[in-house]
């Protein structure tokens, strides 16, 4: 039980990071972006490439940090991959979404995002192969926190959770203390009024894609670190991430952060009663429950 809670917390932090960017994009551009989870894959795979590059070029970076399997090379790779993923998100917007948007075919954007997701996922499969990959082949043993009940935690999991929480704290401080954060929230609430107040909407869209992509990359690396990297990780994560945005209320950044943890924990707790084969269905059950009880989510506002 406590083990499930811990695992849920960890998965939850990954979903939170993914859902934050998604909810911002969904709110601002008004479409369900089914290609968002592929940004996690792009993040994980580009970190993999940079990681191997750094280890080859600068062997001194291939040193593990304390008890975790993460190396300095991977930390650098992670930061670079956030930039690459953010840039990819902007590129996809330029190439596809903005052009569909400007044609006035807003409803078609969800279609375009599905098509884009298919392309990204399978191009990754073609380039990197369909097999699963790991950042490190070293086996890191789990630490026994308690024997009765048996609770195991890997140092990587704790490190991941800690970094995710720090990133969320930074995000919170930016949103609640800086005028830049206010303008992000302003654009999310009312784009036209934001524009009247001197905010350049086109530039904000670019910034939101960069933030969303960067957070997604982080989530992707963490997922790769605590699970494994596969070309289909986006396919497996898209529904839980959507569930997190719906739990929190579409457009609410804080809702997405909390929603990620709720979905992560609920999905792991559900395994106490459900056979594990059913775990892919759990996010859908959560969505159904939210729609029945509180359709606009925890923090969402009603809007057409």
């Amino acid at each position: 039980m406590i083990q499930h809670l811990l695992d849920g917390l960890l998965v939850g932090s990954i979903l939170s990071l993914g859902a934050t960017g998604l909810t911002m994009v969904m709110h601002m551009l008004r479409f369900a972006n089914f290609s968002h989870a592929e940004l996690l894959s792009i993040g994980a795979y580009s970190a993999l490439v940079f990681d191997q590059l750094f280890k080859a070029v600068m062997p001194f970076t291939a040193v593990q940090i304390g008890p975790v399997s993460m190396t300095w090379a991977l930390v650098l790779a992670m930061i670079l991959s956030m930039a690459v993923t953010g840039a990819s998100a902007v590129l996809f917007d330029r190439l596809i979404f903005r052009r569909v948007r400007e044609k006035g075919e807003e409803l078609s954007m969800v279609f375009a995002s599905f098509g884009l997701a298919l392309v990204i996922r399978n191009v990754i499969g073609l380039v990197f192969g369909l097999q699963t990959q790991l950042f490190s082949q070293d086996i890191v043993f789990a630490t026994v926190l308690s024997r009765d009940p048996l609770i195991l935690v890997k140092p990587d999991q704790l490190a991941t959770l800690a970094i995710a929480l720090v990133v969320m704290l930074i995000l919170h401080l930016v949103l609640s203390r800086t005028t830049f954060g206010y303008s992000l929230r302003a654009v999310a609430e009312n784009p036209e009024l934001a524009q009247i107040n001197g905010i350049n909407l086109q530039r904000m869209i670019v910034i939101v894609w960069i933030i969303g992509g960067g957070l997604a990359a982080l989530a992707g690396v963490f997922y790769g670190l605590t699970n494994q990297i596969t070309p289909v990780m986006g396919r497996d994560l898209v529904l839980p991430i959507f569930a997190a945005t719906i739990v929190g209320g579409i457009g609410s950044i804080y809702g997405a952060l909390l929603g990620g943890f709720i979905v992560g924990i609920a999905a792991n707790m559900a395994l106490v009663v459900l056979p594990s084969g059913y775990s892919p269905s759990v996010p859908f059950l959560i969505i159904l429950a939210v729609l029945l009880i509180r359709p606009n989510g925890l923090f969402g506002e009603e809007r057409a």
């Binding site: 005028t179 206010y182 929230r185 302003a186 609430e189 009312n190 934001a194 107040n197």
Partner: peptide
């Protein structure tokens, strides 16, 4: 006005 921001945050913005 931005309803989700405080009065002060609206003015700061």
């Amino acid at each position: 006005i931005f309803r989700s921001l405080t009065v002060r945050q609206n003015l700061d913005l």
